[in-house]
Amino acid sequence: MLEKVVHTKQAFTEELQKAATLQDLEQTRIKYLARSGEIAALFEGMKSAAPAEKPALGKTLNELRQYAQAQFDEKKLLLEQSAKPKEVPFDLTLPGRSKPIGTKHPVTQVMEEIKRIFRSMGFSVENGPEIESDYYNFEALNFAPDHPARDMQDTIFIADKILLRTHTSPVQIRVMEKQKPPVRAIMPGWAYRNEAVSARSLVAFHQIEGLYVDEGVTFSELKGTLVAFAKQFYGSSIKYRFRPSFFPFTEPSAEMDITCYLCNGKGCRICKHSGWLEVLGSGMVHPHVFQAVGYDAEKYTGYAFGMGIERTALLRYGIDDIRILYENDVRFLKQF
């Protein structure tokens, strides 16, 4: 009996392989799988087998039937497919349907990242007007009348003692007038200078000002905060240094330099071969500024800092002419 089963399986497999058309296949099906086919006949034959052999035999026969059916189904699918008339396949390389793509201005992107970092450190975002008075822009920030520091900033005036702010620092004064310590804020915005337009400078530019005033704020903490910022913004492997500098509204004042990330501090055109890039100005809030806003300079100390956004954007994106930022050429904007 078992021999017969082996033989039938072999014969079925051979015939199935030979079947070239659906008709051939149907013949094979009738011969083996139909109700009166050879496999059915084998089941019939099982009845006459010895009772002890029946379970094993039944299992073998069932396996044969399953095998035959599966082989048949597979072959049928194959033949059906090859029998179908050929269609032109869909050209999958056709371009996808496009729609307009929006982009954020690179200056906005830099600004947003800086804001995000300082927000995560607990700074709020404050604003102030672009048209300012001499008081907020200079006087309250400890610029003495006729002080040479005013040489640094040539100003666009609107009227007597009314001007376009030359930095975002006047917002410090406005925030402190409005709020008692602790104050922890950044103040982004446009500033204006009466300067000739060139590849390196524009009449208007963005700054972000920062201010933290509380009891016990130290220069050491200023360093800690700005280093944490610089590592997040420029990369954790940068080296930095703080250099003494001068601003009328902070003392001690410092410029923060980081290693030029274009040449890794070896010296290149961008860092004027110094290996360092000046990234921001900072310092401890001058007691005269606290006096101007009515804060107790003995009780509170604080630090302030400011940085230019355009220069940062130029460095980040490798742009060599600042003027292209505000031409707003769409071919430029779409790169960001």
Partner: peptide, 8 residues
Amino acid sequence: NEILAIGL
């Protein structure tokens, strides 16, 4: 596309 223009 976002543009930014100088205010003058």
